[in-house]
Design a protein around this nucleic acid. Structure first.
Lengths: 110, 110
DNA sequence: TGTTTATATAAGTATATGCTTATATAATGA
DNA sequence: TCATTATATAAGCATATACTTATATAAACA
């Protein structure tokens, strides 16, 4: 059980369409910034700024590989079980990943 | 399963400390505005404005009784199961209700 | 080495948000 | 009837938010 401020803050973070979709996608597969830019059809700075907020709140982790920065969901986060419950209210992010692959823009590293 | 906008909007609504606590309290017991004002130590207009948003989104229902307006949680709402999951991350609202009763400010109607 | 690609970040801006204060309405009760 | 109590709502304002554009950095590669 958490403090009210903590929980409200977490929900505020999730209460943005773009960030929510980023998290849902990352719950399926790790992605680099340019993949998210392509899937969500948002500018690169906009995506980077959302990722920054998620990282500052420890919801995602980053790994640099070659010229890319891959982001992954932090499944150890205390609010991860809550997020899983919320994902049930979202369209399946697999569709975004499929579309990305179809466009040949999936980054496969190593 | 809902649209991304719907879910994000719901989370934005829940992502405010005061509204989140109002919902948690209402999940335990119906309350009138002045009880919430006392429990949450916020101005009456602030509480009324939050209740307005919750009502506009169908999360709460109102019932007028004498000079009071009682608010209750809409447990039929499509996002109610999600809310229940979120309440697990909040301090027990029963404590607020106990404090209100201790101050003799509980409104008992009918 | 110079160019391209991927990313981060700063600055600027329009809009949204959550309060305050002031005021209106309606029910209660002396 | 008049004062009090409970509530809603409007207007104003300070701050937060989510973009944009511009720019910096670093890796890859010709």
């Amino acid at each position: 059980m958490q403090h009210i401020e903590e929980t409200a803050n977490m929900l505020k973070l999730l209460g943005d369409k773009t960030r929510l979709m980023i998290l849902a996608i990352l719950s399926e597969t790790d992605c680099c910034v340019c993949e998210l830019v392509e899937m969500l059809q948002m500018s690169q700075p906009a995506i980077s700024q959302h990722l920054r907020k998620l990282k500052d709140n420890d919801l995602v982790k980053e790994t640099k590989k070659a010229q890319w920065v891959f982001y992954s969901l932090n499944k150890q986060h205390e609010f991860y079980p809550m997020m899983k419950c919320i994902f049930a209210y979202l369209p399946d992010p697999k569709e975004h990943i499929r579309q990305l692959e179809k466009k040949g823009m999936r980054i496969r590293c190593e």
